[in-house]
C-alpha cells in the first residue's frame, strides 16, 4: 500500500524516504553462492597453513579472512543493498578502527626508537 506513494516521482522534495531506502531481498541462491565461496576459502586457508611460505603465511591467512569478512558483510548482512547512510556508517566504523590501530602501532614502534 504505502510503497507506491513513496517513490521518487511521487516524493520530489525527498521528504518521506530521505535515504531512498529501497528494500532489496537477497535470494537463497545468492546465499548459496556466498556459502560455497566461504567454504572454499576456509579450505584454502587451512591448506595454505601447512605450506611453508615464510612471511607470506600470515599475509595469506589474514587476506583470506578479510575477503571472507567482506563477502559476509556485503551479502549475508545485506550491506551491498543498503542506503548510502548505512554504507557510510559501516565504512567510517572500519576507517576509525584502522586509524586507532595505526596510531597505537606508531606509538609502539617509535617509543624505543633505535633501541632494538
Amino acid at each position: 500500500m504505502a510503497h507506491e506513494i513513496h517513490t521518487d516521482a511521487n516524493d520530489p522534495s525527498n521528504v518521506t524516504n530521505p535515504e531512498h531506502a529501497q528494500h532489496h531481498i537477497v535470494t537463497p541462491l545468492q546465499y548459496t553462492y556466498v556459502f560455497a565461496t566461504l567454504l572454499l576459502f576456509t579450505g584454502i586457508t587451512v591448506g595454505a597453513a601447512y605450506v611453508d611460505l615464510d612471511w607470506a603465511n600470515p599475509v595469506i591467512a589474514l587476506g583470506i579472512a578479510c575477503f571472507k569478512a567482506v563477502i559476509v558483510i556485503l551479502f549475508f548482512m545485506h550491506a551491498a543493498y543498503q542506503s548510502r547512510l548505512i554504507k557510510m556508517t559501516i565504512g567510517s566504523g572500519f576507517f576509525l578502527f584502522i586509524v586507532l590501530i595505526t596510531m597505537t602501532l606508531t606509538d609502539y614502534i617509535s617509543r624505543a626508537w633505535g633501541m632494538w
Partner: peptide, 29 residues
C-alpha cells in the same frame, strides 16, 4: 533481520580468530 546482523558479526569475529590463533603461527608441519 537485526538479529541476523548480530549473528553474522559473531561469525566474522571467528573468521579472524581461526587464522590468528590456529593457523598463522604454525610452522608448517
Amino acid at each position: 533481520e537485526n538479529f541476523g546482523l548480530y549473528w553474522h558479526f559473531v561469525d566474522i569475529v571467528w573468521l579472524f580468530l581461526f587464522p590468528l590463533l590456529y593457523l598463522i603461527n604454525r610452522h608448517p608441519l
